[in-house]
Simulated assay, not measured.
Amino acid sequence: MMSNKLLSALFAAGFAVMMSSASFAADENLADFHVEMGGCESCHADGEPSADGEFEFEQCQSCHGSLEEMDATHQAHDGMLMCADCHAPHDAVVGEKPTCDTCHDDGRTAE
């Protein structure tokens, strides 16, 4: 069985290749980027946001994997946060990564 570090490295490498070959505007937000993959329905049931965000969270995981399957930073938030809590799809720019101090002001850093 592959270790989590190896899986994370493979995911990061694949993502880097995808991002380098992807065609998107430098200031394109995540929602606009994902619309190109199937319209609003690629994230929202019937194109409308759900009341609790659970449907959207499941959609993120169906493509990107669960938080449990990701790196230590994501694993630490499993069961506490949904993807959009950190990766605000209508505000965040493609390629922009939130940092620990976005939410934590106590000096925490990703492992």
Rank of each mutant, 00 (worst) to 15 (best):
A51T: 07
C60G: 03
E48H: 12
G14Q: 01
E68P: 00
S42C: 13
F24L: 15
F15L: 07
A31Q: 15
S62N: 11
E56M: 04
Q61K: 10
Q75R: 11
H34E: 09
M37E: 06
A84E: 11
E36N: 15
H64V: 03
F33Q: 03
S20W: 07
D91I: 03
Q75I: 06
Q61R: 03
A72F: 04
G14E: 01
E48A: 14
G14Y: 05
L67C: 02
G39R: 14
E41W: 01
D27L: 01
E28M: 12
C63S: 10
M80R: 12
F24Y: 14
D52A: 00
D46I: 09
D46T: 07
D52R: 00
G39W: 14
S23Q: 13
S66N: 03
Q61E: 14
H74T: 03
A88S: 10
A13V: 15
D71C: 01
N29M: 05
C83L: 09
G38N: 01
A92N: 14
D78F: 09
A13R: 10
F33H: 05
C40N: 09
A45R: 10
H90P: 07
A92K: 11
V93C: 09
A16P: 05
V93Y: 15
E56W: 06
D91R: 05
C60L: 01
P89M: 12
E68G: 01
A76D: 11
C40M: 12
F11G: 12
D78Y: 04
A51F: 08
H44D: 02
D32G: 06
P49M: 08
F33V: 02
A13K: 15
S20G: 08
M18C: 07
A92H: 09
A51G: 05
A88G: 05
V94Q: 13
F11N: 11
T73M: 02
H87I: 06
S23L: 10
A12L: 08
C60H: 04
S21H: 11
C63Q: 12
S66F: 00
A72Q: 05
A13P: 05
E56Q: 11
A22T: 01
G79F: 03
C60T: 02
E36A: 15
M80K: 12
E54G: 01
V17F: 09
Q61W: 08
D85R: 03
D46A: 08
F15Y: 02
A13C: 10
M80C: 07
S66L: 06
G53F: 00
A12S: 09
H90I: 07
A16V: 15
G65M: 05
S50T: 00
G79C: 13
C63G: 05
E41L: 02
A25E: 14
D32R: 07
Q59P: 00
E68M: 14
E69V: 02
A26C: 01
C40K: 12
C43D: 00
E69L: 03
G47M: 00
F15D: 05
A51M: 09
S20F: 10
C40D: 15
C40R: 13
D52K: 01
D27R: 02
H74N: 08
M18S: 12
H87N: 09
C63Y: 07
G14D: 03
A31R: 15
G95S: 14
Q75N: 04
S23M: 11
N29R: 13
M18R: 10
D32S: 04
A92L: 15
M19K: 07
A12D: 10
G38I: 00
D32H: 03
M37Y: 12
N29L: 10
D52C: 00
S23R: 14
A84N: 03
